[in-house]
């Protein structure tokens, strides 16, 4: 596989996030923090305007823009920083951009920047991924 610096892909990864989907993520991941699924706890105890999605739901969903492009098996690293909370009703778009392609120990490695934005264009997650494109 060949990638050029500056190339990018965009994917709609979450559409109108439902509370049900957040509950699904809680069950799948094992993170049952009530901040994510219990409106009473989130508002009255934690002082939040409403529940918020697990940061890892946004990051997990965003991974698709990378794996659909380079392949699941090619991934060497994936990381993310949670910039702002994601809440029910949010729609997320993830973009991956090739920042560098370099040869390391005989392998071609691509460095990708990942950025996920909500329906208002605000960044909710910034991340990076490394993909192994094969022998140099």
């Amino acid at each position: 596989m060949e990638l050029q610096v500056g190339e990018s892909r965009t994917a709609a990864v979450v559409e109108d996030l439902s509370r049900t989907r957040i509950a699904m993520y809680a069950g799948a991941s094992g993170d049952f923090n009530p901040l994510h699924t219990d409106e009473v706890y989130a508002t009255r105890v934690a002082g939040q305007p409403t529940v918020l999605a697990h940061g890892m739901l946004a990051m997990g969903a965003s991974g698709k823009v990378v794996t659909d492009w380079v392949g699941i098996g090619a991934l060497r690293s994936f990381g993310g920083r949670f910039v702002r909370p994601v809440r029910p009703g949010d729609t997320l778009t993830a973009r991956a951009t090739v920042e560098a392609v370099q040869v390391l120990e005989g392998r071609q490695l691509a460095e990708l920047a990942v950025e996920t934005t909500d329906q208002n264009g605000r960044t909710v997650l910034t991340g990076r991924a490394t993909a192994d494109l094969g022998p140099a």
Partner: peptide, 16 residues
């Protein structure tokens, strides 16, 4: 089954 549930939760329908 856990991988299936996790992939559904993150909305990734990749058949893999």
């Amino acid at each position: 089954s856990q991988v299936l549930a996790f992939a559904r939760a993150i909305g990734d329908e990749n058949p893999a």
